[in-house]
C-alpha cells in the first residue's frame, strides 16, 4: 500500500508502515538525529529528529524516526517550534554529554553553546545520553548482553543485573554505533576490556596480532557456516599471503 503526503509542501510517496525520517531522508530533506540507525528499530530516544506533523485537523510535534507515515498528512521539518524544541533537547543532552564533539557541533548549529543544566549526579559512563543504540545493536546481533540498569536518575546502560555477562562477546559493536563515542574499549595483550570484562583474544597465527575475541569467533563459526580457518589470520597477514599467491600466478 502506498501513502502520499507532503513534506515542506513537496509531494512524496512512501510504503505503508515506513517511518517518516527514512522517507524524508530518501527525498533529501535534512533532519538531524543521534539515536537513529538504519539497521536498528527506532525508539525516538534522542528527540532531535522532531518535526511538525499536521493531519485530520491536528497539529503536533513528533519524533520522525518512529512515526509511521499517514496518508494526506503535512510535514514541516524546520518551523520555529521545531527549532526551539530541538535546541532545548540539545541543551539537555549537552548536560549529559559535554564531551561529545558531534553533539557540541550539532548544538552549535541550533545556537546552543552552553547548557544551563548540570551533569547527572552519578554517571558511571560519562557522555552517555541513554539513547539505547548500543542496546539495540546488541539485540540485533542476538547477544542481548546490554540493557538498561536501574530506574529514575540512576538509570544507565550496563550488562544485565550489573554482573559479568556470558552473552557479551566483546565484539564492540556497541562502541561502534554509539553517537557520543562514550563506550571505552581497550585492547591489550591480556584481551579486550569492555563493560568491565576482559575477553581473551584470538591472535593471528602468523604475526600474533589480535584478530577478534574468542567468544566472537566461536559464535560466528557456529552461526555463519564459513570454514574455521577464515577466522585465523589478521588482515595484514592475509593480504601478504594472498599477494604471494597472486605473484606466483602473474610471474
Amino acid at each position: 500500500m502506498e501513502r502520499r503526503f507532503k513534506i515542506n509542501d513537496i509531494d512524496v510517496k512512501a510504503r505503508a508502515g515506513e517511518h517518516l525520517l527514512d522517507v524524508a531522508r530518501r527525498y533529501g530533506f535534512e533532519i538531524p538525529s543521534l539515536c537513529h540507525h538504519e539497521a536498528l528499530p527506532p525508539i525516538g530516544a534522542c528527540r532531535i529528529c522532531l518535526v511538525e506533523v499536521a493531519w485530520g485537523g491536528r497539529r503536533e510535534l513528533c519524533t520522525s524516526c518512529n512515526f509511521e507515515v499517514i496518508e494526506g498528512m503535512q510535514v514541516t521539518t524546520d518551523t520555529p517550534a521545531v527549532q526551539h524544541h530541538r535546541a532545548m533537547n540539545l541543551e539537555l543532552l549537552l548536560a549529559r554529554a559535554p564531551g561529545s564533539a558531534r553533539l557540541r557541533e550539532l548544538a552549535a548549529q541550533y545556537g546552543v553553546r552552553r547548557t544551563r543544566f548540570g551533569p547527572p549526579a552519578t554517571s558511571p559512563l560519562p557522555n552517555c545520553i541513554l539513547c539505547e543504540l548500543c542496546v539495540r545493536a546488541c539485540e540485533q546481533l542476538g547477544n542481548h548482553a546490554l540493557t538498561m540498569v536501574g530506574r529514575g536518575d540512576k538509570k544507565r546502560i550496563g550488562l544485565a543485573f550489573n554482573s559479568p555477562s556470558e552473552q557479551c562477546t566483546g565484539c564492540a559493536s556497541c562502541a561502534s554505533v554509539c553517537p557520543t563515542e562514550c563506550i571505552p574499549v581497550k585492547d591489550t595483550a591480556a584481551g579486550r576490556t569492555i563493560w568491565g570484562q576482559t575477553h581473551p583474544l584470538v591472535l593471528c597465527k602468523v604475526c600474533g596480532a589480535p584478530v577478534m575475541t574468542e567468544r566472537q569467533r566461536a559464535k560466528a563459526i557456529a552461526k555463519k557456516g564459513l570454514p574455521e580457518e577464515y577466522y585465523d589470520f589478521c588482515e595484514s597477514c592475509k593480504q601478504s599471503t594472498a599477494s604471494k599467491r597472486f605473484a606466483s600466478i602473474v610471474w
Binding site: E38, A39, C171, V177, Q216, Y230, E235, A242
Partner: peptide
C-alpha cells in the same frame, strides 16, 4: 551501507585481507 553496526566480522573473514576495519571510525 549505512546499515553497518561496526562488528568487524567482514574484515576478519575476507580471505584476501582486502577489507580493513578502522576502530576509530567503527
Amino acid at each position: 551501507s549505512e546499515r553497518c553496526i561496526g562488528c568487524g566480522l567482514c574484515a576478519v573473514v575476507c580471505p584476501f585481507g582486502h577489507m580493513h576495519f578502522d576502530r576509530m571510525l567503527g
